[in-house]
Design a protein around this nucleic acid. Sequence first.
DNA 1: CTGAAAGCGCTTACAG
DNA 2: CTGAAAGCGCTTACAG
Lengths: 359, 359
Amino acid sequence: MSVTGHTSADTPADQAAKGGKSVSIRDVAAAAGVSYQTVSRVINGNASVKEATRERVQEAIRALGFRPNAAARALANRDTRSLTVVTSNTTLYGYAATLQGVEEAARAAGFTVGISVLESEADEHVRATVNRAADSSSGLVVIAYDSAGVRALDCVPDGHPVSAAVEAPAGPLSNSLPRAWIDDAEAAAEATRYLLELGHPTVHYVALPSTTHASRRTAGWRAALEAAGAPVPEPVGAGWDAVAGYDAGRRLAQDPGVTAVLCGNDDLALGVLRAMYEAGRPVPGQVSVVGFDNAPQSAFYTPALTTVEMDFTDLGRACFALLHDVLAGTSTAAALPPVPRPRLVVRESADVHHPAPTP
Amino acid sequence: MSVTGHTSADTPADQAAKGGKSVSIRDVAAAAGVSYQTVSRVINGNASVKEATRERVQEAIRALGFRPNAAARALANRDTRSLTVVTSNTTLYGYAATLQGVEEAARAAGFTVGISVLESEADEHVRATVNRAADSSSGLVVIAYDSAGVRALDCVPDGHPVSAAVEAPAGPLSNSLPRAWIDDAEAAAEATRYLLELGHPTVHYVALPSTTHASRRTAGWRAALEAAGAPVPEPVGAGWDAVAGYDAGRRLAQDPGVTAVLCGNDDLALGVLRAMYEAGRPVPGQVSVVGFDNAPQSAFYTPALTTVEMDFTDLGRACFALLHDVLAGTSTAAALPPVPRPRLVVRESADVHHPAPTP
DNA sequence: CTGAAAGCGCTTACAG
DNA sequence: CTGAAAGCGCTTACAG
């Protein structure tokens, strides 16, 4: 990695010298021969300004390179039209995609978006982070897929505008803030049934750390198993990434009874795929694996991953919509965008069960 | 996906009623029996405040739940201690990791970080996006790995504090803004030599879209080939993701002469892996593949990907340091953090060349 | 259609 | 160690 300084022609000193106190509304007014209030009007697209003077002002703005000061504006308006998303991760697919959805919707609505990451779930850290985030923007969107996020939600100053992306609607959320989630219980059940119909005696489950004691996804998996009269193995708890999936996969690989495994996300599934490969248990020949999320890489794994597609980007957009409503005071849960159901994407990693696996 | 509104107890109306005009410095002053200037002093940790009154004020702050108004502060201070990173993507590994590095360093320094994504490289859109970003924070960090980013860099208002993460130091950047990059020329050469030493007659190259006519990475690859007297095939231009790698891989798979391919990033390599698999050209049996980046999943692919590790997070940190320097007026390119060189991580996807491939 | 006033919530010198 | 003044750059009523 290499680095380069900037040329001496651009030092802050020069900058200060160049712009002086930087051009303000009054400078523009002077240049255009009007009062500064009029300048404010044209900036804000106020209708009642004569066309001729509007043009003169606009010309002065261009000539002087005037740019409105956001802080002053925010102060006078009592509003910054900004939000910050609080999240414990920006790198995992589900988080990144949610963030992207929030950003996209926010930008479209003229909102500025900040990001504030939770580095640990230590109470003090979470509280400080949330407070700083709350202070620097008009609203918060917290991604509460994990316990740091859930804790952040609990720290939001009372009455501060906020919405959240959560794992499931129920659970330890003491208050009922506006929140959105993907209803994945049915999808988990569908994936489980799919595996069962392939002839597998049961389906093992590699779980994401859950923020609730009863994740809907886990519930869907369990329900499908019970409905089919299949045994319900203990879910194996894992983390979020391929390393965690790999560890879980190694344990599972030792049990000849596991022939089908459903994973909490695609990274976990990738780790399981690798562990099975190393253990000499070919997928899908001997064991079937199904993921969750449908991350962009999943289609290119070998075997290509059968997985449940989750539209996190849309979830992010919904979170923005929710926040926007509370900001506007029009919090109508009724008038919300359609809710895309997750769907099973069948590829190569799951196949019919062979009762007597070829050695 | 499901959504829920907030309880009626939390409407903005209630909020307004509750806080009134929200508690200000004057309310605290009144409660503590001091002037509001004194409150300002304790907020800012000004030393010259008697311990007793400091405590009284702090108590009042706590009791009233006072939170300083960031906009007012920014206005009075002429500084927001904030930055926004301008990027065309938050989802690709290199971008996400860079963003993470910027965020981490910024947060540690008490900066607020915004994010502003470039949705297209259309001039007008880029300019508007950059302007809004510039207006809403005291500095910009632009991730200029692609042409949208490079264009954004060109749009930064003259004299506005900015730093950039770039592909390579030279190129179409007309001005010389502070920027950081990963010096990958030598790493590309090393990876190429590695493949050559494995006995491959030459190394094909699946390139990222480059922002410069002479990417350092491409140059390193070419130099290694030339130094070894190996033929230099035309690089195959691709995009950024696995889909693009897959397309490139399909083309390459048809040419029996390609036995080794170096890819611009790991997603590209994944696509190539898949294309080779589908074409019946086993990796690394018949063709060797090496990636770039060392994304967290690479170690779990089958075959595990041999790749060049790039520390984007550190790059992001360096970008923040650079911006911080220009903001502070102490732009000393000399006093910069150590520059971690990328290194080759050998795994399974590259192996010795078998002159007569087993059918 | 356009000015003059007051104020958004804070900070920075300046007195005392 | 602590007040009183002035001002940061804008917007919002209020006159005219």
